[in-house]
Design a protein around this nucleic acid. Sequence first.
DNA 1: AGTTCGATCGCCT
DNA 2: GGCGATCGAACTG
Length: 192
Amino acid sequence: MTSDPPPPLPRSFYARPTVEVARDLLGKVIRHGAVSARIVETEAYLGTDDAAAHSARGPTPRTSVIFGPPGRAYVYLIYGMYYCLNIVAEPAGVAGCVLIRAVEPITGLTGDTVNACNGPGKLTRFLGITLEHYGVDVTRGPITIHMPPRKEGIAIGVSPRVGIRQSADLPLRFFVKGNRSVSRAASREPRR
DNA sequence: AGTTCGATCGCCT
DNA sequence: GGCGATCGAACTG
């Protein structure tokens, strides 16, 4: 018989400071239906003192979930053609979320391995995530996040976030050092 | 009501 | 390195 899959991470995992959640999501397994992948790159978007965050100017219809209970999915359409997936952090009433920027495929592979999910717009397509998943509780499903089957040491790299103009210097991007699935835009060396 | 522009990506030169 | 695709949220008037 097959071993029981681990349960989803509890809500308490997400009810913490956004930066902690962003770091700790590295190496975790995200699953949607038959497709699963390992999170290898994240970015923290803070509720306050972070002009780059969608929540910076208070709740709107689009961003309301960021102000609600932790462990829910904030999905939005970007550039009219891609979806980005965030996981809400901080206790309910405090804004903060973590953008999932890259994952490493575990199952669901067809053809190109790395290039299917090494970017925020690509991984949502790989995992089949769209606006209909706005507000989904990742402690319940259909999208869930789990501990990896085996404990493994991870070297974590830190850098500024990719593709933003406001608060561009804050070191809020986290990635698994040396992992080849880290997003292409992010793997560019920072200019000097 | 009209305009701007983005937490992207792939293709072009 | 540059740019177009393609859309709606947010902002301006």
